[in-house]
Design a protein around this nucleic acid. Structure first.
Length: 669
RNA sequence: GCGCCAGUAGCUCAGCUGGAUAGAGCAUCGGUCUUCUAAACCGGCGGUCGCAGGUUCGAGUCCUGCCUGGCGCGCCA
């Protein structure tokens, strides 16, 4: 994929900043360079004179004029103006900019260090739901952007195969369904048959229903809780019938999750498993270090007496007066979840002097890439890529885990791993809930009181039968997209129509999951998610398709190939555009130069809604341009070429922005 | 009780480190297909930016207090 991440105006911006610093006689001055709200004002702008006015005690416009005079001499600057309260507005050489954009991309420079991105992390006991989709799409988009910026990235999907959730479904299988491992294998076989025939979901869908029943079963008789505890202990111990059934359940469900995520283009490099963290005794290694460094201490008094605890500040500021004790090892000697998490985080940075064994994940394979899982000691293969050892770790986990993520981070810090603590990044995002309308649509029997009906969203708790399976949503999107595709082009082959419908459905879904800022609760609404109009993935895809069609039509009419049509574009001259249309044409070019800075800002702030919004704005601009300025019908050849070149530059940029979000553009739609 | 997040148009949301007239989408009303695909375009309607103070040339954005809603704060995971 071609992803030019160099900023077209980076040299120019640096030169402007230097010149301003010279005028201000302040070599350390920060010079903000912005994009003016209206292209009529200029291409780049700096409000720096407004800030200087205070320190220099002179009118801002006077300072601005002085800066403007100095900037006029800079190469690449076509004009400088002082405007408003004291903005300095710059106009750049348009012809040169268009030529640069039409040049072949320079390869992106590789950056040192490996980054680990952990995302998805679904409990392997039932089907993925829409909340998991938000996690996976955010994580996958982060990965795509990091790679585009030149980083080496390892994608980990952590599998908690020995936790309570798996234990509960194992209890349900044994006690409610009366199945052993053999029986479960039969159930899986029937499910896979169903999937192969396109009649429904995999075993994860069966377990979704089964799991929904088990909490009620526990509630009926308090004595039944014993099953949960025994099963959990068996899973952790790792031997015997129950452990084998648990491992099997986890493997089969993970296979289903991988299949679901693969449908929307989300893939992984490694599946680290909780069971292997236990078998490789990661915690024991971390425990020694934590004790040695004094990061944790044995509490001797108070309610934590007998526990190993870590001292933590009460608030975000690290106010040391209000510290409290966080239990890491219980008084019965059993490590807590956070304790294991600290050990796992240490491994990710290569701070633990031990490693997993690894083997290819046999149940699910990508056609052109390998997928690895961790293995118990002695069960891995000799030849595997190096895993872990990251210089930075992104954990994509919902915001409710913020506190625990801070504990993990603190766990590294108090051991003296301050760099790694700083590079432990919690990519937090808000929950996905359901709009009341959608909750009712999915479950008409649901009784909502007046208060609930008025709320913007409802929590999708499993108990009330709320929740939307990821597969079901994707199915509905594909079916709806297929209907739309068919109605537009009845002549398409079934296979082509299917393929386009898939791209459209996936584009709609991924865009929907990205369009809200991350600390906004998504009130999931089926109708809004299924929409293909307005601010949606398909809207943006369509803009690209239309530009491609122009190239195709030109190719048909002139008898030369589409590639040859494109090969002629570097000849385009911006000056061939009629003067009264230049501003409108230039605005589109200018917008297309902003992808790199948008991607960098998105990664820096971990806010991909800005990238989604950029894509939408670019699509809007392309569509409006498309209507106003015909290409094929344009009689003047030079104007036609320039116009096409601008449209192609914009569409290519949009396509790249979409690719970074995992949204593919179909050949037609 | 403490902490985090949210409160902007009828609805759903943007608004980058305080900066030029507060923007989109949906909904609604009215236009635009013999034309490069109308999954589109153009226009209208619609806002005391939760409330009250403060900081300054300038506040949706920063500070303080308050109100409303959500989440978190466990020898659960």
């Amino acid at each position: 994929m071609r992803t030019p991440m160099h900023d077209l105006f980076s040299e120019l911006k640096a030169a402007v900043a230097d010149a301003v610093r010279e005028v201000a006689a302040d070599p350390a001055l920060g010079v903000p360079i912005e994009n003016p709200p209206d292209p009529k004002l200029g291409d780049l702008a700096t409000p720096v004179a407004l800030g200087l006015a205070r320190t220099l005690r002179r009118p801002p416009r006077e300072i601005a004029a002085q800066i403007a005079a100095r900037l006029e001499a800079l190469p690449g600057i076509a004009g400088v103006e002082v405007a408003g309260p004291g903005f300095v507005n710059l106009r750049v050489d348009r012809g040169a900019a268009l030529r640069r954009l039409l040049e072949p991309d320079r390869p992106t420079a590789r950056r040192p260090g490996k980054l680990v991105v952990e995302h998805t992390n679904i409990n392997p006991n039932k089907a993925a739901h829409i909340g998991h989709l938000r996690n996976a799409v955010l994580g996958d988009t982060l990965v795509r952007c990091l790679r585009a910026l030149g980083h080496e990235v390892e994608i980990q999907n952590y599998i908690d195969d020995t936790g309570v959730q798996v234990a509960d479904v194992v209890v349900a299988l044994r006690e409610l369904a009366g199945l052993d491992e053999q029986g479960f294998a039969g159930m899986v076989e029937r499910a896979e048959q169903r999937v192969a025939e396109g009649r429904g979901g995999g075993i994860d869908h069966d377990l979704w229903d089964l799991y929904a029943r088990v909490s009620a079963w526990y509630a009926e008789d308090a004595a039944r809780e014993r099953h949960r505890a025994e099963t959990l202990a068996a899973l952790e111990h790792g031997e015997g019938d129950i452990a084998r059934l648990g491992a099997r359940v986890a493997r089969e469900v993970v296979r289903c999750h991988l299949r679901t995520m693969d449908r929307i283009g989300v893939r992984y490099d490694l599946l680290p498993k909780e069971s292997d963290i236990l078998r490789h005794r990661f915690w024991q290694a971390a425990f020694e270090r934590l004790k040695q460094t004094g990061a944790i201490r044995l509490s001797t008094e108070g309610k934590t007496a007998g526990c190993w605890v870590m001292n933590l500040p009460h608030d975000e500021e690290g106010d040391s007066e209000h510290e409290y004790e966080k239990v890491i090892v219980r008084s019965n000697g059993v490590v807590t979840y956070v304790g294991k998490d600290i050990a796992y985080q240490m491994w990710k940075f290569g701070l633990l002097d031990r490693d997993f064994d690894y083997r290819p994940f046999a149940l699910f394979r990508y056609p052109d890439a390998s997928l690895w899982e961790t293995a118990p000691p002695g069960e891995g293969v000799a030849d595997h890529p190096p895993f872990g050892g990251a210089s930075r770790v992104y954990n994509v986990i919902d915001v409710r885990q913020s506190y625990l993520q801070r504990v993990v981070q603190r766990g590294l810090e108090v051991q003296g791993f301050t760099d790694q603590a700083r590079e432990s990044i919690h990519f937090a995002y808000e929950m996905v809930a359901l709009s009341p309308r959608t909750a009712l649509e999915l479950n008409p029997e649901l009784e909502l009181d007046d208060d609930e009906r008025r709320r913007p969203f409802l929590d999708m708790s499993g108990r009330r039968g709320l929740g939307v399976k990821a597969d079901d949503l994707i199915d509905r999107l594909e079916a709806k997209a297929l209907e739309e595709v068919r109605s537009r082009d009845p002549g398409l082959s079934a296979q082509d129509a299917q393929r386009i419908a898939h791209d459209v459905a996936c584009g709609a879904l991924r865009y929907y999951m990205l369009r809200f800022t991350r600390n906004k609760i998504v009130a999931f609404d089926i109708d809004a998610a299924l929409a293909f109009e307005g601010e949606t993935g398909p809207y943006a895809q369509y803009a690209c398709v239309r530009v491609r069609r122009i190239v195709e039509k030109l190719s048909e009419r002139s008898g030369i190939s589409a590639d040859e049509v494109l090969a002629g574009l570097p000849e385009a001259e911006f000056a061939a555009i009629p003067p009264d249309q230049q501003l409108d044409h230039w605005s589109l070019v200018l917008l297309a130069t902003r992808l790199p800075e948008t991607v960098r800002a998105a990664v820096d702030h971990l806010e991909f809604a800005t990238l989604a919004r950029y894509a939408f704005e670019l699509a809007q601009a392309i569509n409006a341009f498309y209507h106003r300025f015909p290409v094929i019908r344009e009689p003047d050849e030079r104007t036609r070429t320039a116009r096409l070149a601008i449209l192609v530059v914009a569409a290519r940029t949009l396509e790249r922005a979409l690719a970074l979000m995992g949204v593919a553009v179909p050949p037609r739609m």
